[in-house]
Each structure stands twice: as C-alpha cells, then as structure tokens.
Design a protein around this nucleic acid. Sequence first.
DNA 1: TAAATCATCCAAAACGTTTTGGAAAACGGA
DNA 2: TCCGTTTTCCAAAACGTTTTGGATGATTTA
Lengths: 340, 340
Amino acid sequence: MAVTIKDVARRLNLSITTVSRALDGYEDVAEETRRKVIQTAREMGYVPNRAARQLRKQRTETIGYILPTSAPRFSDPFFSEFISGLGDEAAVQGYDLLISSAPPGEDAERLVYKRWVHGRRVDGYVLNRMRLRDWRVQFLSQMNAPFVALERTLDPVDYPSVEVDGQAGIRDLMDFLIGKGHQRIAYIGTSPDMAIQADRYAGYRQSMQDAGLAFEQELVIEADLTRRGGYRAAQKLLSMQDLPTAIVCINDLTAIGALQCAHELGLKTGKDVAIAGFDGIEEAENSLPPLTTLTQPVYEIARELVKILSAVINGTPLARRRIQIQPELILRASTGAVVS
Amino acid sequence: MAVTIKDVARRLNLSITTVSRALDGYEDVAEETRRKVIQTAREMGYVPNRAARQLRKQRTETIGYILPTSAPRFSDPFFSEFISGLGDEAAVQGYDLLISSAPPGEDAERLVYKRWVHGRRVDGYVLNRMRLRDWRVQFLSQMNAPFVALERTLDPVDYPSVEVDGQAGIRDLMDFLIGKGHQRIAYIGTSPDMAIQADRYAGYRQSMQDAGLAFEQELVIEADLTRRGGYRAAQKLLSMQDLPTAIVCINDLTAIGALQCAHELGLKTGKDVAIAGFDGIEEAENSLPPLTTLTQPVYEIARELVKILSAVINGTPLARRRIQIQPELILRASTGAVVS
DNA sequence: TAAATCATCCAAAACGTTTTGGAAAACGGA
DNA sequence: TCCGTTTTCCAAAACGTTTTGGATGATTTA
C-alpha cells in the first residue's frame, strides 16, 4: 500500500542500505546517486515508516505532555495557548506531540506516566503545574527519562527548567499598590504545595515586610485557581469588618472571580477596592473593569521548553539549564484609574 | 533495558509466541499457563513495545487532531475542554492522542495532514471548525483515512459526524427575543464558508421570516469569532441611527466583545440592548452582565467523536453515523432581567 | 488397536527501518 | 606493475512484536 524504502531501492536498482544512507545524508554515497535517490523518493511519495524507524532507532521522536485536568470538564485559557506552543515548536524540532490527561497528584496520573515510561512511549516529557515536592521529578529522573519543567520544585534533582519569576512580579505589583497608599492588602492563593504558590506568596510576604506593613493571617486565603474559588475567597475577604483595600490574586481566573464578587457586593473595583491577577490571559483585557495583571508569554515559554527538551534528548549541551522570565506588569482599571 | 516479551518468555521457559498469545487472550493456551504468564508479566513490569506492535500490526493505535490555530498565539477556551475530552476517551478506547497545529485552510495545514496520512502516522482523524466545502473531507476520504467531524459540510461524501443543531438553537433564542418584543434584531456571524455560520445564520433568517420581521442587510455583520471581532462589529451596529434592540452572536467570544462595546458606549446591556452568544463557555457565566447563551456539552461531544472514530477504525458498525445534539438555551441577564 | 480429534505449545516469518562490517572497483604512488 | 587508499556500494543482523502453519502428545472414536 504505502511506498516503502524497498520500493524505492528496487526502482533504482540499489540496495535499501544505499537508499537509506543517501536520504540520511551519509558521506559514503556518490553525489550523483544521492541526487537520484532523493528525486525518485520524492516522486514516489516515500515517507519513512515511523514505527519501523522507532523500533530500530529505539527512540520515538515524540514528546509527551500530560494535561493536569483538575475536573473532568475542565477549561483553562492557559492551556490552549500552551499546547499550541508545544505543538509548533515540536514540529520545528522534528517531534510529534503526544497528549494525555490526568487529574494531578492522583494515582491516575502516576499510571499514565508509568505506562508511557515503561512502554517507551515518548522520548521526553514536558511538565508544568509543579508541586513543591513533585513525585514526577523523582520518578522521571530515576527512570532516566528526559524532561523539562515549567516552574521549579524543591526536589534535590538538577533538571532543566523555565521559570517565571513570580516573586519579583508580585513585588512589582505590590510596590505599585503600596505606592498608591494601600496598606491592607489581601492575597488569594492556592494550596501551599504548589510551586507557584510558594513563589508568588513569597513575593507578597516580602513586600509587606519591606514596606513595614503588618502581616495578617486572615488576609491570606487559599483558593483553587478557578473563578469560583476566587469568588468564594473574595466573599470572605469582602465581608470582613475592616475591608482590605486591595486584593492580589495568584492568577487571573481567581482575580476575575473576585471581580465579580466585588461587583455583586456593590463595590466599585478600582475605586473601593483594587484587584489584580497574574497570567495575562485575554479575558483579563475585557473584564469589567479590565484587570491589572502580570503577563507572561505563555506561547513563547512553551516553545522554549520544547527547545530545551529537544537539546536534552539529543545530548546537546545547554547554554543555560534554568531560564528565568520576568513577568510584565500591566496596569489596568481594576487597580485604579489609568489612561490606557 | 526495558523488559521485553523475550524476558518474560525466558523466565517462564515458554516461547514468546505463547506469552504473546496468553496475554492477548487466545483460546489455545492452557488456563494454568495463562495465569502464570499474566502474573509474571505484571511482576516484571512488562509493557509491550508500542513501535514493534505498530510495525507488526500495521496500525498505530493513535488518533490525530490538528488544532486550527488562527494566530500563532492563540487562545480559545473551547479547545482545552475539547482536547481533554478527546484525550480521556482516547485513553478509554486504548488510543493515544497525537496533536499538531496549523492555521486552517492554509498550505501549512495541508502539509501536516499529508505528512500524517502518507507516513501512516495515525489510525484516524478528528476534525472540527469545518468549512462548508472542506478539502480535508475530500482528501481523507480519498486516502481512505478514517475520520470523524464535528459539524457537517456540503461535500458529497458520507462520513460520520456529531453536529450541534445551531439552527434550532438560534431559533429557540430568537423565539425568546421576539416573544419579548424585539423587532430589530441584529446578527454578528463569521465568514460564510464556515459550517457553523451557514447553520446558525440560517436559524436567524428563518426566525425573522417566520415572525414576519423585515430582513435588513445592514443588521448582519461578518466578524471572526474573536472578542475583538465582536467588539468591532458591535461598534458598527451600535452607532447606527436606528439602533437594533437585540444582537445575536455566533459565539460567546463575539458576544463578549459586543458586551464590552455596549458598555463603553454607555448602553445597559439587558435593558437598552439585548445580547446573546453561543457555546456556553465558562467566561459567559461571569461576564457583566452574565451572558445569555446556547450551551453545548463540549467535553461530551469530544468523547462521542472519539467513540465513533474508534468504531470506524475497527470496522464496528455504527448505530448512527450522524449524531445530532440540541444546544440548551441558558437565559441570563444580558437579554433582560432574570431570576436566576 | 489404529485412526481421528483435541489441547497445548512453538519455530519462523514478517513488519520497514538503520547500522555494522565488510567487498568490489577505481585510483594513486612507488 | 603492484600495493595501499579511497570511494562507493551492499548483505545481513537487529529492533520487539504478532501471526502463520504446524508439531507433539494425550484423548477419544471406530
């Protein structure tokens, strides 16, 4: 059915060895021959059988990403952009992108990773939504499986990563808020075992301290990165006696939930209370009011991750094993009037 | 390195044939033997090498989906849910999910499909964002590649599909609006060669006609399914002499753009003008005001698509080759006060 | 008792590549 | 002319499965 290397060889009266080597650019084949091989291969529409090549070369030329789906029906604008970045760069590097999904931290997740690792399903892994101690890091490095992560963990393993400097980002934001006179600043975060929580919360704590502002435990709430979580957390904050004047949120979805809560309580966000997020998702541009946020180049980050992973797989030495990206503070109306 | 079938066979003093057949559930192996095989295979952590199996069986046990990325940095809440549905059901059916991305309709898209088809990269394809005449339908059916599509095209090819009845959905919505007394109802759609445009626009036209309302060309605007497109289209509509009292949008993102435009022009959506969307994305629940929309079960649709595709690949006869899903009208404040 | 059937097992081929370890021919230097 | 190089090619092995077509005994049937 499909045209194989054998067909090409037969047509040219050559051995399959020569055809293979001609196409792979080996030096021990005459230029004239190589020319002919390449041409007829193209003419005949020859495409190497992936499975055969994989079997022989013992590599799959595929990279894997397992979606951390917290709910069966899950939807997060971050991921469509992230995946399209992974896919695009994978194509550039000659890899396919294999995708599965599993609830993070569960046995199901373990199962998927194990199956892929033992079945030698992919050459390398892209990880994100890291937990502070992440079994995936331990497991993959133990199994000698190449991987790269967005965000860093505390695991005593040296692995290549891209990290967004959430701490610095939040500090920028806090400086701005404090500069505007805010003193009671609340923080809505997520579970303390998530890497981004450790990172961003640290920024919050540090800025409060540097500014000599009193830390109050009740101004810090743990949510779950969703709109609904943000909404509920804001409910608590905005029903206090002594209202916070600003709410810093760990991500945009949380902030958008908070925005809605404030609105329903009759508070004017940007005037009565300032609210800010983190991520720079598109929805944040169009919320009411538009959301102040720290934006990160998700698409480019995804591509960078694949670039690094590809280098790791091929044993190419890396210029830098840890790339740090500074998020950019985008001021919008949710933290006070702006001329945008 | 990895444990192969040979290792298992050696351990048990059996041939690899028997091990293979025991694991595959053939009848010609003694129950006692099968038991032992299964147990030691599990103990040794044996996972069949995918490439070898693929090569031998001439199938990849993988299904493919190519993201229609209209922009390099593209983000659409629809797709994260869609992909997670595809991935979950693929896992259930024993398939992997391979993903790539390409701008729809371009040569790049053609290239990706061709490479996958010729390289026998996947066993079947999931298509969406169909155009009215879609070359992919022609191409894949010509190549005898199994595929399944969300939405139908006009191509004279019989293929299995899931379709959301946009026409009926829009009619429901229109009935509601007309019942509330709206007469000047505008429609913001997209390029007429998209299947969903044909479908949903038809619903609009038909309802207008059935209600005896005059059709006005200037009340129909072509946008591009994005927030920005919706915003710009609404600008045109809301700067007319004789304002429309309602705007029906082809999807939620468009409607959210329109919402914002109305807000900026000082119009109270839900009072001065009614605006509605289509899709039921999460953002629509939290917009200001919350958006009336037609919701479709994206996750379930994705799973259904994979189920059907799996049946097609395996030659299992299908109960129904075309599944129709009725979207559900969700009334929210953007079309007038509601007790929600 | 011989023949036929049945229950288990297995050797070998095949899938389509890449890679190893030469072989043959052409060439160059003495 | 002969021998060592160089250039160009190739046969065969290997990757890890599944499948084909028996083989071997044991059991039943005639």
